[in-house]
Write a protein that binds this DNA or RNA. Sequence first.
DNA 1: CTGAAAGCGCTTACAG
DNA 2: CTGAAAGCGCTTACAG
Lengths: 340, 340
Amino acid sequence: MKSKPTSFDIAFRAGVSQSTVSRALRNSPLVNEETRLKVQAIARELNYKVDKNASNLRSQQSSTLALLLFEDPTNDDSLINPFFLSMLGSITKACSDKGYDLLVSFQQMNDDWHAEFEDSNKADGIILLGYGDFVDYEEKLIQLIEQDTRFVRWGAEVESLPIVSIGCDNFHGGYQLTEHVIMNGRKHFAFLGEASSHAPEFFDRYKGHCKALTDNQLSVNQACQIDAISTEDSGYKAALALIESGEPFDAIFGASDLIAIGAMRALQDNGYQVPEQVAVIGFDDIPMASFTFPSLTTAKQNTKLAGELLVDSLIKLIQGEPVKTTLMPTNLIVRKSCGS
Amino acid sequence: MKSKPTSFDIAFRAGVSQSTVSRALRNSPLVNEETRLKVQAIARELNYKVDKNASNLRSQQSSTLALLLFEDPTNDDSLINPFFLSMLGSITKACSDKGYDLLVSFQQMNDDWHAEFEDSNKADGIILLGYGDFVDYEEKLIQLIEQDTRFVRWGAEVESLPIVSIGCDNFHGGYQLTEHVIMNGRKHFAFLGEASSHAPEFFDRYKGHCKALTDNQLSVNQACQIDAISTEDSGYKAALALIESGEPFDAIFGASDLIAIGAMRALQDNGYQVPEQVAVIGFDDIPMASFTFPSLTTAKQNTKLAGELLVDSLIKLIQGEPVKTTLMPTNLIVRKSCGS
DNA sequence: CTGAAAGCGCTTACAG
DNA sequence: CTGAAAGCGCTTACAG
């Protein structure tokens, strides 16, 4: 491996000083057009690239963002939630559009977790995606704030903390989905997913769901809210528990598509017809939602826009501009699983 | 934002020299146990983190790998091939297991493409995933070799170049799938996907497919090989073209799951029963393959193992150890779309 | 518009 | 085992 050329090599060949090379390569207006062109030509010829470690060290910024993806440690380690995978895709694209590099890391929530990336100057800021239990997570967030780390997160607004969150309007999404199914004549709903402060997004969906019920003179059956995390397996088990409970139901709201898909399978394995006997709805609109049988009615979270908003917000934060928590609307996607 | 502590701050507080701090933090055996503990305690207290830009600059290595994901520019820009998304997930995990950071970048093949990452010392090596047309891509690979860039790629072996490729045994996978469908009594196959040196992986699958046909005394109908790129849409159109061609067929081999899924939809939209009239098989085993109706018989590429192999191989390459091109076996996953 | 010089925060010979 | 010093390759005041 031949050693890489430095700005001094360029300077020598161009017959100018190294400072001028540095300026020319960054298109500084301070440098003469002719000089600039000559320097750039030589740089291209030698296949010279600025050493990012040196320039970052000197200028104290890295043009790099870090994405920390937390997975629920209880989840089987081979699979990543497809919703997060879509987010990852859109964040990656948004970063390259903005000229930032993206450092990606998977974390377990139980890891010793100190926002290494920003502290070690590898990234200018951090995007947080996912978490296990929100109550545990919140402590970490407080640490980040104390360390003055610049970060944005995907999720529901955290009213108690000065944090920039980008998320969907889970309440309204839950309301809209439920209302749609009510219009189709269903009366006895079950909700599969944790509905507590440990999972604020699910909780908001549940609150919207309940509001739609009471607005339509239907009652909420507490016994039909069964905890589940966002995996197919967990949805399957929750639906099984629902069936065994003996409670009557003609509609299931899965707090996420994965839960809904698992629930649908549990229903079918136990002889229930979907949607004839039981309507099923999910949340997220992951790619496979359109391929299930029957295809899944759900609330679409726009991952493309979400990725762009996360990246834009973080860059503004880094540049010291004010940034606000944003709530994006969801789209009701009507397919076959709810009987209309 | 309070300014970050440096190794000099630690040195001052610990009453030792900055060199000693540097050694202590990297657990150098040269430093006294007691000194080391004291230094580390102070570092923790001040929440000190080594500045990566400085240490990388000095030590000339970054403990960072770059993943370049190329997408077919003809593809709709909102979607990333789910197969690559799985690979991305497993590569990310493999990197963190090995203590490397991962820089992720999406590229368009038509971009000015110079392996910036390694040249600018941001990454020690590069993983290449995907490409548009192999013939164009090959030129880029030659450039990389000329620049002595350390990289590994996902894909079929390139015999003509000294490149480390990690890929699946596409030939055998294609053979096995085809043989399975032949055993179920199908005789007239169509192959949807480009089968030429522009797409070596698809070509290998096609060759395995053809070999299985001739080994079983069936003939290959050239008119039934129709080009398609790895998208649902392209598969849909290719199947339409097949239908319009008037050629007889009772089985379709989609060169990827996405193609097969598109083809299945085209068949169903045109009144064909899958698998009763036409058996359909795919390749990859992307997550949605098990959710299609009917569920898709396919050859599974083990993305978890693939990610680990890519990362391990690249790290060995960086460390100057010999690395060989590896072919991983595929797994035949029999589901409902092939009628057995 | 250009150059000489300082310095970003580390790691690593070198000397003791 | 420890410290003083050099230097990684840039960017950026400062002076002209």
